[in-house]
Amino acid sequence: NITNLCPFDEVFNATRFASVYAWNRKRISNCVADYSVLYNLAPFFTFKCYGVSPTKLNDLCFTNVYADSFVIRGDEVRQIAPGQTGNIADYNYKLPDDFTGCVIAWNSNKLDSKVSGNYNYLYRLFRKSNLKPFERDISTEIYQAGNKPCNGVAGFNCYFPLRSYSFRPTYGVGHQPYRVVVLSFELLHAPATVCGPKKST
Results as ranks from 00 to 15, higher is better:
N1F: 10
N1T: 12
N1K: 12
N1R: 11
N1L: 10
I2E: 14
T3S: 13
T3L: 10
T3W: 10
N4H: 13
N4M: 10
L5S: 13
L5V: 13
L5D: 10
L5Y: 14
L5C: 08
C6K: 05
P7A: 12
P7S: 14
P7G: 10
F8Y: 09
D9E: 13
E10P: 06
E10C: 08
E10M: 09
V11F: 08
F12W: 07
F12I: 10
F12D: 04
N13I: 05
A14L: 06
A14C: 08
A14D: 09
T15P: 13
T15C: 06
R16K: 15
R16M: 13
F17D: 02
A18V: 09
A18E: 10
A18F: 07
A18C: 08
A18P: 15
S19G: 05
V20T: 04
V20G: 02
Y21S: 04
Y21P: 04
Y21T: 05
A22D: 12
A22G: 08
W23Q: 02
W23T: 02
W23R: 02
N24H: 13
R25N: 03
R25T: 06
R25P: 00
K26N: 08
K26P: 00
K26M: 12
R27G: 08
R27L: 11
I28W: 15
S29G: 10
N30G: 10
C31M: 06
C31R: 06
V32F: 10
V32G: 07
A33Y: 15
D34Y: 06
S36R: 13
L38F: 13
Y39L: 15
Y39C: 09
Y39S: 15
Y39F: 15
Y39Q: 15
N40E: 11
N40Y: 10
L41W: 14
P43R: 12
P43V: 09
F45G: 15
T46M: 13
T46L: 12
F47M: 15
F47C: 14
F47E: 06
F47A: 11
K48M: 08
K48Q: 11
C49A: 03
C49K: 02
Y50Q: 03
Y50V: 04
G51T: 06
G51F: 05
V52N: 06
S53Y: 09
P54A: 14
P54H: 13
T55L: 13
T55W: 12
T55Q: 15
K56I: 10
K56P: 08
L57F: 08
L57K: 08
L57V: 07
N58W: 10
D59I: 09
D59F: 10
D59P: 08
D59E: 15
L60T: 11
C61N: 11
C61A: 07
C61Y: 08
C61T: 07
F62E: 07
T63M: 08
T63Y: 10
N64Q: 13
N64W: 12
N64R: 12
N64F: 11
V65N: 03
V65F: 12
V65A: 12
V65Y: 08
A67N: 00
A67P: 01
D68R: 04
S69T: 10
S69K: 04
F70S: 01
V71G: 01
V71I: 07
V71S: 02
R73C: 04
R73I: 00
G74L: 02
G74D: 00
D75V: 05
D75S: 11
D75W: 06
E76C: 03
Q79T: 05
Q79E: 09
Q79S: 05
I80R: 02
I80E: 00
I80M: 05
I80S: 00
A81L: 04
Q84A: 15
T85S: 15
T85H: 15
T85A: 11
T85W: 09
G86I: 01
G86Y: 02
N87M: 15
N87Y: 15
I88A: 04
A89E: 00
D90S: 11
D90P: 02
Y91D: 02
Y91Q: 04
N92F: 01
N92Y: 01
N92M: 03
Y93I: 02
L95G: 01
L95W: 01
L95S: 02
P96Y: 02
P96D: 06
P96K: 06
P96H: 05
P96W: 03
D97V: 11
D97P: 12
D98A: 10
D98S: 11
D98G: 09
D98N: 15
T100A: 07
T100C: 13
G101V: 02
G101L: 03
G101M: 02
C102P: 02
A105N: 08
W106M: 09
N107H: 01
N107D: 01
S108G: 04
N109V: 07
L111N: 08
D112H: 02
D112P: 01
D112R: 03
K114Y: 09
K114S: 11
K114V: 09
V115K: 14
V115M: 12
V115T: 12
S116K: 12
G117A: 04
G117C: 02
G117W: 04
N118E: 07
N118L: 04
Y119I: 07
Y119V: 07
N120R: 11
N120K: 11
N120T: 06
L122P: 00
R124L: 00
R124H: 00
R124P: 00
L125C: 13
L125G: 13
L125R: 05
F126K: 04
R127Y: 02
R127Q: 03
K128V: 09
K128M: 09
K128L: 08
S129G: 14
N130A: 15
K132R: 13
P133Q: 05
P133S: 07
F134E: 07
E135Y: 05
R136L: 07
R136F: 05
R136W: 05
D137L: 04
D137Y: 04
S139C: 06
T140V: 10
T140D: 11
E141C: 08
E141Q: 12
Y143V: 04
Y143K: 02
Q144E: 11
A145Q: 04
G146R: 02
G146C: 02
N147A: 07
N147D: 07
N147M: 07
K148T: 14
K148N: 13
K148G: 08
K148Q: 13
P149W: 07
C150R: 01
N151P: 07
G152C: 06
G152N: 12
G152Q: 10
G152F: 07
V153T: 14
A154F: 05
G155D: 06
G155N: 06
F156C: 04
C158A: 01
C158H: 01
F160Q: 13
F160M: 12
F160E: 14
S164H: 10
Y165Q: 00
Y165K: 01
S166K: 06
S166C: 04
R168C: 00
R168T: 03
P169K: 05
P169V: 04
T170Y: 04
T170D: 02
Y171M: 05
Y171I: 01
Y171Q: 02
G172R: 02
G172H: 00
G172C: 02
G172S: 01
V173K: 15
G174S: 08
G174A: 07
H175V: 01
H175P: 00
Q176L: 03
Q176P: 00
Q176W: 03
P177S: 05
R179N: 00
R179V: 00
R179I: 00
V180N: 01
V180K: 01
V181A: 05
V182S: 03
V182C: 04
V182W: 01
L183C: 02
S184W: 12
S184L: 08
F185E: 05
F185R: 06
F185D: 04
F185Q: 07
E186D: 14
E186G: 10
L187M: 14
L187D: 13
L188K: 15
H189P: 13
A190Q: 12
P191M: 10
A192F: 14
V194I: 11
V194E: 12
C195D: 07
G196I: 11
G196P: 13
P197F: 15
P197T: 15
K198E: 13
K199Y: 15
K199A: 15
T201E: 13
T201W: 14
T201M: 14
